[in-house]
Amino acid sequence: MEIKKSAIAGTLESSDVQIMLSTGKNGFEFELESDVAKQFGDQIKETIVNVLKKYKIENAEIRVIDKGALDMVIKARAITAAQRALDIVDTPQWEVL
């Protein structure tokens, strides 16, 4: 699926993560800002990529501001961002969950 419009989900508050998705051309391009990027950067990216793949998204620019979110929070925010970016908020793909 192609991302048609940019979308954002999450907040910058402690224990949360803000994910912005926009149209990309070359696979998944990440920009990650996190105090724990060194320790958990790859894991954060992997969690998001797994969600996007389930939505059959192949290209995206992904901007992530992590404030120490746990895996399930990252997943939840990624799902919301993906649904918004694909403009399918009204018809959520429950099977992805």
Binding site: K5, S6, A7, I8, T11, L12, E13, S14, Q18, M20, S22, K67
Partner: peptide, 24 residues
Amino acid sequence: ETKGARFNKIISELENRLSQVECF
């Protein structure tokens, strides 16, 4: 409670409002 918590809250809310008008 935490230093910067209110700042992050304000910026989050402003960004949410920008995204509602499709400004990214």
